[in-house]
Design a protein around this nucleic acid. Structure first.
Lengths: 332, 332
DNA sequence: TTGTAAGCGTTATCAC
DNA sequence: GTGATAACGCTTACAA
């Protein structure tokens, strides 16, 4: 392995000068710099990141913990985070948490092992996370779902506002019996409860009743769960003329489930999702959706992460992503 | 920061004994081990991976370079690779190459910077990669697309066999004018040329003419490109009663493009994809597809990577993934 | 079974 | 503007 020492010898300078050149530091004469660069080229030298990290205490890696990499929403988000980080000279290591508390706790444990400079945590369910977070061994930025009373940097989704807008939109399209396909709202603040609240707000805004609630519960946040929920919805015989799905991925399953029962969207029933994942505009029918500005979210999360590495003691910030309602065939 | 030294002092042993406990090595008495573990707990000690890597020369990280993280095929693959690697005690860092030669070369450059123990490269287009690969600074396992004359470990897709089977299937369903939506086959061996060859083989197998070719070229491998190709196909006025799409992602776009022109699948035209991504069974109509065993591929790729780290000089291995044809509504 | 010493490749500090 | 030296926290090799 070629080290700085070797390069230094080859260029006839000291190790330290090579280091200065490699790190683009001031105070190296042009002549020497050129000589060093040439020596680096000739020798095929490569910086040893482990050594640098050991010395500097920084790894240049930001962790991104998501429930599943292969759900469109998260993979899309991951892409954007990777880009945003790269622009700031950082790398991203993705942790899969599996949407379970165990997994999310695990990701934190791993963040210790892998020594991220910061961890961006897209937490869905984890309760009682707070105590553990403080022991993560690196700054944590919450992305998406939860509210931690201002103790952590937090990039929030417009969960309530978005869901409210979606529900109002369905009402304005003439729907009178609007159902929701979602996880059962649990105690504490999480994506399910917030979106469910937004749905209720939307109903209230248009004077529609939520009693008895038309909640069709979801077993997981997958396409499969969405399809099954749609089956149960139709089979229950309860009349529904519009559905808000808690995510686009779930909505994709609902679309399939409705087709299985011979119901057409939007003719028989209207459907709207949340996230505006890339495939939504290509589905048949194309899927209306609440579209948070994902790029903005990724950018902000990485920005917060990088800032906090530099200044660990700044007060925590909370930001809510902007969104727009994208109207497509499924609610026409 | 708490170091092994601190733990050692606390437990009344030497640094080395702590190291032995941390690494689960033999030859530490139970009593001492317990004392050390207790000291670790009390002190909140965490292993410093940079230091370990610097000393041992291994990082425990496998790089995975894919064109796009947010195409379903790659995100699914990434999930499986992450799982397989975790089972072997490795972490995965994902590099996005952007499906361009520049990107793929870049990933190699990064592999130098990040010091992966090995790099799994899902290369799509890169020609003249061979020379650069040897300078990657770590073992490289090719995943998916290309053939490198046996110089690299290689987990290949059943590109030709799969496409042939898909084409034969369409013929057996009664299709007589079978088109293909694919990138233009280029010089050299890549996914496009191999799949196109499989398509031609399939036509030949059933005595169907490939002259003039019903190739509808693709500008990229995206849903959008698939939709546009479908538009051009229909607008060209050329009669087509079956289509093989080069990937499921492209097929999803084709499905949309056909709907835009008022054509129904499978009634007016049958459609089959390649990859069997998770969403395919949930589409309406559900999408028939060539289903390579992705889990097998990920497992094999990681296995090869780990093996090669241990034994850099073993001769390269080449494996072709098994596959099956999944018949769904789109070709009924 | 446990301890000691050396060194992995880099950077911070301070001297020149 | 450049160089010598001393860490950073850990593991390998070997001694006790």
């Amino acid at each position: 392995m070629v080290t700085m020492e070797d390069v230094a010898r080859l260029a006839g300078v000291s190790k330290m000068t090579v280091s200065n050149v490699v790190n683009n530091r001031e105070g190296v004469s042009d002549l020497v710099r050129r000589r060093v660069l040439e020596a680096i080229r000739q020798s095929g030298y490569r910086l040893n990141v482990s050594a640098r990290s050991l010395r500097s205490g920084r790894t240049g890696v930001i962790g991104l913990a998501v429930p599943e990499v292969d759900l469109p929403y998260f993979s899309h988000l991951a892409t954007l985070v990777i880009d945003a980080a790269r622009r700031r000279g950082h790398h991203v290591a993705i942790e899969r948490t599996g949407a379970a508390e165990a997994g999310e706790a695990d990701a934190l444990a791993h963040s210790r092992v892998l020594q991220f400079d910061a961890l961006i945590l897209s937490a869905v369910v984890l309760d009682g996370l707070d105590e553990r977070l403080t022991g993560a061994g690196c700054p944590v930025v919450m992305l998406g779902e939860r509210d931690f009373g201002g103790r952590f940097d937090h990039v929030a989704m417009p969960n309530e506002e978005g869901m409210k807008a979606a529900t109002v939109h369905l009402a304005d399209q003439g729907c009178r019996r609007i159902g929701i396909v979602s996880g059962v709202p649990r105690e504490g603040v999480n994506v399910m409860t917030r979106r469910y609240r937004g749905y209720l707000d939307g109903l209230a805004e248009r004077g529609l009743s939520a009693d008895p609630p038309l909640l069709f519960p979801l077993d997981g946040m997958t396409m499969e769960a969405g399809r099954d929920a749609a089956h149960r919805m139709v089979d229950s015989g309860r009349e529904v003329d519009g559905v808000v799905a808690v995510t686009d991925t779930v909505a994709l399953g609902v679309l399939r489930g409705l087709a299985d029962r011979g119901l057409r969207v939007p003719d028989d029933i209207r459907l709207i999702g949340f996230d505006d994942v890339p495939e939504s505009r290509f589905l048949v029918p194309s899927l209306s959706s609440v579209a948070p500005d994902h790029r903005w979210m990724a950018e902000k999360a990485v920005e917060l992460a990088v800032q906090r590495v530099r200044a660990p003691l700044r007060p925590a910030e909370e930001h809510v992503a902007p969104f727009e309602l994208v109207i497509r065939e499924s609610t026409r």
